[in-house]
Amino acid sequence: MAEHLRRRTVLMIDDEANARKLAKLLLEREGYRVLTAANGEEGLILAKVQQPDVVLLDILMPKTSGHEVLRRLQEDQDLKDIPVIIVTARRGEQGIAASFRLGAVSHIEKPYETKDLLQKIQVALALAQQEESGRATGDA
C-alpha cells in the first residue's frame, strides 16, 4: 500500500524544448517527478526503462508522430496500462477521436492553464489506480 505515497512520475514527450522546460518546472513544483523526451523514439525508450505513471504526449512531432507513439505504447504489454494524456496545439473533433481510439485517456489543447492539466493528470492517475486494483482483485 505504499504505492500511492511514492512520487508519481510524469513522462512528457514534446519536441518543443521550452514546453518541456516549463512543464518540468511546474509539475516538479507540484511534487511530481518529471521525465522529458524531445521525440517519440526517445520517449518510448524512456517509458520502457522508467515505467512512468502517466505520459503527456504531443501529437504533431517530426519523425515519429504522437499517434505512432501511442500505438506502440498500446502494443507493448509493459506499457499499455500507462495512461496517456494528449497535449496538442491542434484543434478539431477528428484528432481527438483518433487519439481516444488509439487508447488515450484524456486530451488537452494548448494553450492551457496548468491547473487544468494538473486536474487531468490527477483524474488519469486515479482511474489507472482504480483499474489496477480491480485487476489485482480479479487476480486474487
Binding site: 516549463l22 504533431l60 496545439a89 496548468t114
Partner: peptide, 16 residues
C-alpha cells in the same frame, strides 16, 4: 500549431 505552442508556453510561464 506554430502559434498555439508558444502561447501555451507563455501561459505556463504565467502559471509558474
Amino acid at each position: 500549431h506554430e502559434v498555439r505552442n508558444p502561447l501555451g508556453i507563455i501561459l505556463q510561464c504565467v502559471n509558474y
